[in-house]
Design a protein around this nucleic acid. Structure first.
Lengths: 355, 355
DNA sequence: CTGAAAGCGCTTACAG
DNA sequence: CTGAAAGCGCTTACAG
């Protein structure tokens, strides 16, 4: 079927099967200099004369020569590449990955690109899939790990890698013993609660969890308590039920709050997905937002812009977050650890708090 | 300042600055075999005896040895890597990248991973940024280019690369002379229009553009005309204004339709962002959806799930799309072109058509 | 089944 | 300022 084709020339061409590649030697011949001069000229080594540099560049262009990065990396030991791992829920449909992570991924790639590094991206979830030996395989100089806090197995794997001295930074880890970056949850919560107070709301309930693996939920709840107390107001926690989709958690918590008889005129939900469920439940109960009750979430999901009323929120600056992760990793690679850990946040005032 | 530090040992240690790396020679010594046997054993070459293979694997584990991929690739000429380029609008804030592209990016990475390939991702927009010489630099075996149709400069660049014989497939190109994959727009439109008809709508207007650089808009509009005519109904085009944000295009088109005096009981918008603007304008005009007028979009944006009423739509299966792109590229790399060009779509029935 | 050796295409001391 | 040569760490014919 083609493979037993024995036309003459087949075997003697065996070595020719690999397509011919233009090398720095070809460029050297074309430019009439040595191969080492080609390498220096193309790398921009200032030691080569301008005339030679131009001649070499022109020859390279004529031959459509490009440096074989594998050879360069083998020689220098540097990759110029950062690995990015996005941890998913095991078996999760990729479409259900929190879109924030897609955005963060994009901003990491962009930030790395601005700093002259490429990004080697992978989505990982289960054991057979986990692979973080980037430095050992000389595929990258370090790793940025982002993704769902809930995949403990994956985080445990990367925690071990971090423990062995690899260059690694992360966003979303359930533990604090890997170098992490997170939203400035205290500041974001302060912005949200102060905003509600400025709008005249006083009986502000917080839909949250004290026991969630999501550290940011805990941080936001604690900051909420502090803000309320600082303002002389009474905090009120409405806990979420475990193991449900976020919007369903929001619906149920809102139902529980309404049925509790507890007075409230505003709700601070620790994430927008929960807040969207809360809003639906408020509609179902004919609670008018923002007239009767104000509502604010956290995360700045796009979906919040399109609901009625649109959802006020606090948004992590994921572009800053991407830069911070990249800078932190590059600093670590350079041996001068960078202490930045918090990504800035900003308030998004939308309809659900505009009374 | 540290660099003029002349403590003894400094210069003789110069070669030691590069951290020691465990090589296949070390594993060979540890396992008591030759280096070539180590290479074969770890590559799973069936020619090595099981006993030897185990001994080598154990030695490698003890020494925490991992193959230097740069050396392997230099030798084999294969990268096992696919490049993915996401083209953005020049100067665009990354957050405004259509979330569909983030999802598609994710599914491409996942599909590549399933096929044993890593992905080298970059976001590109302007000239100083454009870089697609992946095969020449031996960084990847081929490129998948996705992103906004509107960045003509970037597409022209990749079109040229495609013309020079590189392995490249794309989603979103404004021209048809690079190997492309797109949604099955004809089928998706048929699903949308048939659905409206099934729900009893008859006077179905289409908000679209015949001249947009977005080829899918044109394809959807043409399919709409065909479907309407096949059903014995009168097509009615409401053109969008150029150069505006999509939602604003939707608002204006809807306003124009309402003011035109043309009778209508449903609207098919060629994308969800436009449909969301249409919906807002309908609310502003107290047009009840879906009772008075039905509305359906295209693209299946998440935001559509949260508006009131939720927006019916047609969704490209972006996971299938990612697989198709990867398979098409791998087929091209393998020299056996694959003719698949259309990603499957499915109808999402939501509130805006449920009367 | 295993080993000795060549060579992938660069970068970078070392000399001049 | 330029060249000759070594060597990065593998894979794979070639021998045995």
């Amino acid at each position: 079927m083609g493979s037993n084709d024995t036309k003459s020339g087949e075997s003697q061409v065996a070595r020719t099967i690999r397509p011919y590649r233009v090398t720095s030697f070809d460029v050297a011949a074309e430019a009439g200099v040595s191969q080492s001069t080609v390498s220096r000229a193309l790398a921009g080594d200032p030691v080569v004369s301008e005339a030679t540099r131009l001649r070499v560049a022109e020859a390279a262009r004529r031959l459509n020569y490009h440096v074989d990065e594998n050879a360069a990396r083998l020689r220098t030991g540097k990759t110029g590449t950062l690995a990015v791992v996005l941890i998913c829920r095991p078996g999760e449909n990729r479409k259900d990955v929190n879109p924030f992570y897609f955005s963060l991924l994009g901003s990491i790639c962009a930030a790395a690109s601005n700093r002259g590094h490429e990004t080697l991206v992978s989505f990982q979830d289960t054991t057979e899939n986990l692979s973080g030996m980037y430095q050992e395989q000389r595929k990258a100089d370090g790793v940025i790990v982002i993704g769902t806090t809930e995949n403990r197995e994956a985080w445990a794997y990367f925690q071990e890698i971090a423990g062995s001295g690899a260059n690694i930074v992360c966003w979303g880890a359930p533990w604090d013993d890997l170098p992490w970056v997170r939203s400035d949850n205290a500041e974001g919560t302060r912005l949200a609660v102060r905003h509600l107070i400025d709008k005249g709301y006083r009986q502000i309930a917080c839909i949250a969890s004290e026991t969630s693996p999501q550290r940011q939920f805990k941080e936001r709840y604690e900051a909420y308590v502090t803000c309320m107390e600082d303002a002389g107001l009474q905090p009120h926690l409405v806990p979420i039920e475990k193991g449900l989709p976020r919007d369903e958690q929001g619906r149920r918590a809102m139902a529980a709050l309404a049925q509790s008889g507890q007075a409230f005129d505003a709700v601070f939900a620790v994430c927008d997905e929960i807040a969207l469920g809360v809003l639906e439940e408020m509609h179902a109960r004919a609670i008018r937002v923002p007239q009767d009750v104000g509502l604010i979430g956290f995360d700045g999901l796009r979906a919040g812009a399109h609901v009625t009323p649109s959802l006020s929120s606090v948004e992590p600056d994921f572009q800053a977050a991407g830069s911070i992760l990249v800078e932190k990793l590059l600093a670590m690679i350079g041996g001068k650890p960078d202490e930045t850990r918090r990504a800035p946040v900003r308030l998004i005032e939308r309809g659900s708090t505009q009374r």
